[in-house]
Design a protein around this nucleic acid. Structure first.
Lengths: 125, 125
DNA sequence: TGACATCTACGAAAGAATTCGTATTTAAGG
DNA sequence: CCTTAAATACGAATTCTTTCGTAGATGTCA
């Protein structure tokens, strides 16, 4: 039974979710291979079991080898994590967060254009 | 002796750091009052002791009542946390993070202008 | 069928983070 | 002095997260 609302994934859970977002529905073994040699099989299995309880993934156990599917969209989770950091570290100022995220980096021209378009939209033109 | 490099603050440690950034050098009691009734005195003291060991704060114990000062700048820590989230949730794409941070929000005209200036700078022209 | 590989379930160990009780020290006021 | 208030130190309980050993079930194939 998933708790409402679905909790923020822990660090390890996020690693697994990212693998599932890349792979789509997958078995434990596929997830472990995607993650590389640093994750033990039973560790990943246990995490997936916990994540199923939390509602972060769903499990199809109709076959002997279960298949896990992300139950939360990548963008929703990303939004959740950004909002969380925004509150905890920036007192809710998206402005400051964005300045930090962009400062000292080199987005491509296309990315800059996209950001400009977003700013246009936000200005309500 | 602070470990190198200074570790990312935990959730509780960040709360305390934020209080110290607002207050400047402070005693345990001042920090506890700033945080409100949900933080016990000895809890805050213990955290500040741990944070001193980690190098997140410095302690002046020349007087009976010790005075704690943040040893990491707010902006540096914010950058550190953004970079961390960038890696863990966005695979390093600052672009996606920024879109999430801004989407669905309503920055002021002045903020939008500031962001435009930043984009100009990033374009390097 | 029998041996072997693979899978899930489960609990517990290990580690990290948080909270708090209690002891001890120190300062202040009568 | 003596009492009381306020501070630090310290360890331990608690909770959350992560990892892993082991048991049991199930499929595979010679």
């Amino acid at each position: 039974m998933p708790s409402n609302p679905i909790p923020r994934p822990t660090e390890s859970e996020l690693l697994i979710l990212r693998a599932l977002w890349r792979l789509g529905p997958s078995t434990v073994r596929q997830v472990v291979e995607e993650l590389g040699a640093d994750t033990g099989y039973t560790t990943a299995l246990k995490l997936l079991q916990i994540m199923t309880e939390k509602g972060l993934v769903t499990r199809d156990d109709s076959a002997r080898t279960h298949v896990f599917t992300p139950a939360v969209p990548e963008t929703t989770t990303q939004r959740q994590l950004v909002d969380d950091l925004l509150e905890r570290a920036f007192g809710g100022s998206a402005q400051k967060l964005v300045l930090h995220a962009l400062a000292g980096r080199k987005p491509s021209a296309a990315e800059v254009s996209e950001l400009r378009r977003l700013l246009d939209t936000l200005e309500g033109k």
